[in-house]
Design a protein around this nucleic acid. Sequence first.
DNA 1: ACCTTTATATCGTGA
DNA 2: TCACGATGTAAAGGT
Lengths: 231, 231
Amino acid sequence: MVEGQKTKEIEQIIGSKQPFILYCNCSVKYEGRAYSTLESGNYLIIYKEDSSIQIHGSNKIQPRNYQGSKTEVKYQDGNIICINKKEKISITINNIISIDLIKNWSSHEIEISRTESELVEKISNNIGSYIDISYALGSRGCVIEREYKTENGPIDLFAYTLDHGHLIEVKRRKANVTDGCQLNKYHEAVLKQDISVPKLSCYLAAPAIGKNAQRYLDDKGYKFIEINWDD
Amino acid sequence: MVEGQKTKEIEQIIGSKQPFILYCNCSVKYEGRAYSTLESGNYLIIYKEDSSIQIHGSNKIQPRNYQGSKTEVKYQDGNIICINKKEKISITINNIISIDLIKNWSSHEIEISRTESELVEKISNNIGSYIDISYALGSRGCVIEREYKTENGPIDLFAYTLDHGHLIEVKRRKANVTDGCQLNKYHEAVLKQDISVPKLSCYLAAPAIGKNAQRYLDDKGYKFIEINWDD
DNA sequence: ACCTTTATATCGTGA
DNA sequence: TCACGATGTAAAGGT
């Protein structure tokens, strides 16, 4: 059982709901979607402003245990109890090594670029350089829909004229067999729809493709489109 | 530019490759698979024994930026530079609020139960209560293989007799359309193999299944097996 | 080094 | 709320 001033301190800090870092000797039990235990040792516990909590070991990016925002955290008989919906973490504290409040912690988000959405936009803006729709240009034009809804989920791009549809699934990373299957899933859904597009072509667009994935596309009669960030 | 004793301290600590926690005002740039920027603010930086590094904001479990194990970290002109293969993070430090070494940090792993692998084992040990193999019992028996390899990847369970094969894909959570497609992928690969199993049945085993996924299974002639942790 | 899969995934979006 | 897909997914396991 933990005694002394640090116990008082942790009780007061947890009660205050301010963010803190606790480095301590403890063991952890988790029960919820799964069960897990973490044997006694020195771990780093981080409690954030959103009342999320995470317990880190000395390696890996991911925490050993965690509980997302809106977790109810309380200190009770030497344990930190974290409850969130149907999930519960119990941290049994053997010894507090240090505890510190974190003040004025920023909540800014990263601004990210080179997402899949940007790749889709890039293809959409210059569709003619990726698939052959020359027959449609000038006369009737080509309609391009993003996130076209099918029974099996939305496909990234559906470009169609009166007589030819093109389904395109886009990946920002190297494509694999699973990605080919995702394309196949949309293809099957569109076939089932019985829309009046006699011809239908399917494409997987990515910066690279694995060997097995290429074979899968060949088997299905699908095509790979190589796309790069730098034109 | 950072001056004074804390600058010396951070330089020495980073050079020593010991784990540390740094709370500081900084901005972050990332370039690698994608690009990102994080505007100046107070963030918590954790450097671990495996030389992974992560930068946390005041909410969410996931770090704002990170770099996995075996990252080369150095301090240069007021910046922490983190390089890992083709990825790079630059942390520009405006002001060090605190920096602390973490000593005797444990690397124990969690012990987890209720994994998918356990579900597979459970079905494997009592296959007869999940699928109808009564015709095979007594006379010829039923062979069960886990992680049976196909051209399109390994399937969780393949139970077969001389004349009837059963492919089973297992999920520990509610099944969706994508899971059905995964099953279909293995099904197609086994059909291609032209093994001497005249009949082939496919199953998706999970604690629950979504509506669209059930429709997908129906379309394909596959079956859903409901499986629970508690018998 | 490449391929494949799981995960207490987390997170956002749309119906 | 449910369903579905993206993620710099990370981490693990196999070939």
